[in-house]
Design a protein around this nucleic acid. Structure first.
Length: 414
RNA sequence: GUGGGCGUAGCUCAAGGGCAGAGCACUGGACUGUGGCUCCAGUGGUUGCGGGUUCGAGCCCCGUCGCCCACCCCA
């Protein structure tokens, strides 16, 4: 093989593309009902918007970004996620002057230089939504409900909604200290990764998969026991709303977020039908980020859907037929071929998918092709039909055949 | 970045150190202008790449590249 796509970067072909389009179309329809409007964001941005927002010490920033200097020496990064560009856009265009809330969605590729594995690629697609300007938990409940409706709308079953609150900059430091205190005495028993997490991001220890670490962290303080009264109230209200809407959820006090900008509500949708990378969507609040980007104090919340993972799940149960032509036109001889070409154009003008035979071949091979591409009808046009102004039609699904005058073709097909 | 598994025809996979094969797909024929089913034939390979051991390597050894899975991290 002389050339192939880069590691972790893949082509998306039919028939997969039909599943992608179904997800995108459904999302469009559902977002419209919730007043989320599309924005199109650049794929490359100034590097610092990601460093500032995602966090300097995260793996994404430290080793996973596609960063390069442009011709003028400016540091450019291919977006590893969508929230930072969305916030940059919101602030840059002073969208906070428009009536609040402002609700947006976007979709497109993200880039992270990681080792590929199941459900993880270097170029991967997300649909993201962001809602700016509402701190009340009714907004949290709304977007979680919207996400559920979307997943239901595309026919995704057996997913778990996990939610948590990770507090705000008022209460999280207290919780962090409580955690550090708890782990301090037995730190040397934890795995090397956790010892590193202790320094870098102790909340992540709660997330460790090593058996020994899971045992050791039994009895660790829970973030939900350390929330300040405002965060507590916000979280309780969200849970109440979810119950009102009968949205099934699991409280997971060990659910943490990898990106630094999150506050309060954190949630994740997972599936057991994927590999280790089982999150199909995730999101949360980021009430401080707009300010950090130089905008006014503006609460916000959003989530992102991992397209490849959704498509993987949908493929398991996909039963829809692939799109197929209505008519294949088989012809014999040059004159018939030209007549067939004209008929194809006429039928297309009426909205039908028609495949001509592009030159000549034996009738047998033309019909074989009609069968292979799953056409519903085959038309046969030869000298006899030309003279009579008719075509032979053949319904390939029902194995029926007959003759029809060219001017009456449409009534046959509808 | 770390660990494990796997690289043979377009696809799925065989081949005990001894002639590189099958099924599917593709093209044609049986059937002169009628698809699917069946039968027959044909096209298609530097066995990922490079080196080594051997009379002889798809197979054993070393290196390298690629893919997959897991860790880290994350949608």
């Amino acid at each position: 093989m002389k050339y192939s796509a880069l590691k972790g970067i893949q082509d998306i072909l039919p028939p997969d593309i039909h599943i992608w389009q179904k997800v995108e179309f459904t999302a469009l329809e559902i977002f419209r009902k919730y007043g989320f409007q599309e924005i199109r964001l650049p794929i490359i941005e100034s590097t610092d918007i990601f460093i500032r927002s995602i966090g300097e010490t995260t793996d994404i920033v430290e080793k996973e970004m596609y960063t390069f200097p442009d011709k003028a020496g400016r540091s450019i990064t291919m977006r590893p996620e969508g929230t930072a560009p969305a916030v940059r856009c919101y602030v840059e265009h002073h969208l906070y002057n428009l009536p609040s809330p402002q609700k947006f969605f976007y979709s497109g590729p993200m880039f992270r230089y990681e080792r590929p594995q199941k459900g993880r690629f270097r170029q991967f697609y997300q649909i993201g939504v962001e809602a700016f300007g509402v701190s009340h938990s009714s907004m949290d409940a709304e977007i979680i409900s919207m996400l559920r409706n979307l997943l239901e709308g595309i026919g995704l079953k057996e997913v778990n909604f996990e939610i948590n609150s990770i507090g705000c900059d008022k209460c999280r430091p207290d919780y962090r200290n409580a955690l550090l205190n708890f782990f301090k005495s037995r730190l040397s028993d934890f795995c090397p990764d956790c010892q590193r997490r202790y320094e870098l991001n102790p909340l992540r220890i709660l997330d460790c998969k090593v058996e020994r670490c899971i045992e050791l962290r039994q009895g660790a303080p829970l973030v939900t026991d350390h929330l300040c009264s405002e965060c507590r109230e916000h979280f309780d209200e969200l849970i109440f709303r979810l119950q009102t809407l009968k949205i099934p959820y699991t409280l997971n006090p060990n659910l943490v977020r990898g990106l630094d900008y999150y506050t309060r509500t954190a949630f994740e949708v997972t599936s057991e039908h994927l590999g280790a990378q089982k999150a199909v969507a995730a999101g949360g609040r980021y009430d401080k980020l707009v300010e950090e980007f130089g905008g006014p104090q503006t609460p916000a919340i959003g989530f992102a859907i991992g397209m490849e993972r959704i498509v993987t799940l949908l493929k398991e149960t996909w039963t829809e037929d692939h799109p197929a032509p209505k008519v294949f036109i088989a012809t014999l001889g040059k004159e018939a071929e030209i007549e067939g070409f004209k008929i194809a154009e006429d039928l297309r003008a009426k909205g039908l998918w028609v495949e001509p035979n592009y030159g000549g071949a034996s009738l047998k091979s033309q019909l074989r092709k009609a069968d292979r591409i799953d056409a519903e009808f085959a038309f046969i046009i030869g000298e006899n039909e030309l003279k009579a102004g008719k075509v032979q039609w053949k319904n390939l699904k029902k194995s029926e055949q007959g003759e029809v005058e060219i001017k009456n073709i449409l009534t046959l097909l509808t």
